[in-house]
């Protein structure tokens, strides 16, 4: 057990996050999500917009207080630590944000932005040392010394995202949560940024929780993939497996919306597609939350909540049709 938890960088058990929505109602942003990530691996988390991916990430990194459930970082439980107790753990866990414009303070220079983690954890003894570390880090993300004195608004989206990555990696964290780090970028730059993230992973043995709302990029970066729907994990398995054998109807629907480079294959592929909109997370449907949009929904799906069960080796899925 101890060997296993040594390998395990992040473990999440039954994580739940509800936001008050007024009038005593709750937004069920995250509802009983469990997973773990091994050292040096990447878990891709996919799902439509609004299914709770960001909320899940922010709860794990403890910007949001979890409603219930437990979070273990390198075997230590961090779910209910006070901000002060949390501080040493923050060094081990960093986040890269989706919006390269909103995630950098417009009133700070790149030098100050990247040095902020160093200052928060009192790592450098002097300003000179700090500056050296920042410039070293900037060089590693493909920026140079001249960029350090500039303000974020003078950069392109890709360059900004590099600044964000530099800020996240300067503390040499174990776990990096990437919340759609590339979805706001140009396609040409997306590849650059993803390759850079992969290079860092190989170099430092980083562990990633990689969030995206489409499956195409996730396949390239992830070892495992988890599919989220309305705050719940509905399918989880190896990245290649999910493309070759998607079991959950929702995953199949998501995959059918991925453009296929080969037109012949595209025509052959039966199109399931996703119909309808995401139901409100304030009053999620009873039973299987996907039943309102599922082409295979039965009476049982409307009443009974499916459990995440192993349907094949290492392939977990929460669907009555698959599991029975």
């Amino acid at each position: 057990m101890s060997a296993a938890s040594d390998q395990e960088v992040l473990r999440v058990e039954n994580l739940t996050k509800h936001f008050p929505a007024g009038h005593g109602k709750m937004v069920h942003a995250v509802d009983g999500v469990s997973f773990s990530i091994q050292r040096g691996k990447t878990l891709g988390l996919v799902g439509e917009s609004g299914c709770g991916k960001s909320s899940c990430a922010r709860t794990i990194i403890r910007i949001y207080e979890p409603t219930s459930g437990r979070i273990f970082l390198e075997g230590e439980e961090i779910s209910h630590l006070t901000p002060k107790q949390m501080l040493p753990h923050r060094r081990k866990m960093q986040m890269i944000f989706q919006d390269p414009y909103a995630s950098l303070n417009a009133r700070m220079t790149v030098q100050d932005i990247v040095a902020e983690p160093l200052r928060a954890h009192h790592i450098c003894a002097s300003r000179g040392e700090e500056r050296e570390m920042v410039i070293d880090m900037l060089a590693r993300v493909g920026l140079n010394q001249d960029h350090a004195g500039r303000y974020a608004h003078e950069f392109s989206g890709g360059q900004r995202q590099r600044v964000g990555i530099a800020r996240a990696l300067i503390l040499h964290p174990e776990l990096v949560i990437c919340d759609e780090p590339i979805s706001a970028l140009d396609v040409s730059i997306q590849a650059q940024v993803v390759n850079m993230l992969r290079a860092f992973q190989e170099e430092q043995g980083l562990t990633y929780l990689f969030i995206a709302h489409d499956l195409s990029m996730v396949r390239y970066v992830s070892d495992d993939v988890g599919v989220m729907y309305l705050g719940q994990l509905v399918e989880k398995c190896e990245a290649d497996e999910i493309y070759s054998h998607p079991l959950h109807p929702y995953t199949q629907g998501l995959l059918s919306s991925v453009p296929i480079p080969d037109p012949v294959a595209a025509r052959q592929k039966e199109s399931v597609g996703l119909e309808g909109d995401l139901p409100s997370p304030i009053a999620p449907p009873a039973g299987c939350r996907f039943h309102t949009r599922c082409p295979y929904a039965t009476e049982r799906c409307k009443q009974e909540v499916p459990e995440l069960k192993e349907a094949g080796p290492g392939h977990f899925v929460a669907c009555h049709a698959v599991n029975s």
């Binding site: 922010r58 910007i63 923050r90 960093q94 909103a102 995630s103 902020e116 983690p117 200052r119």
Partner: peptide
């Protein structure tokens, strides 16, 4: 997000307010 970034970094409340 930049305030969240500061929180994830572990910056103190004072830093977040003043910087």
């Amino acid at each position: 997000e930049f305030v969240m970034a500061a929180q994830t970094i572990g910056s103190s409340t004072r830093t977040i307010l003043t910087r």
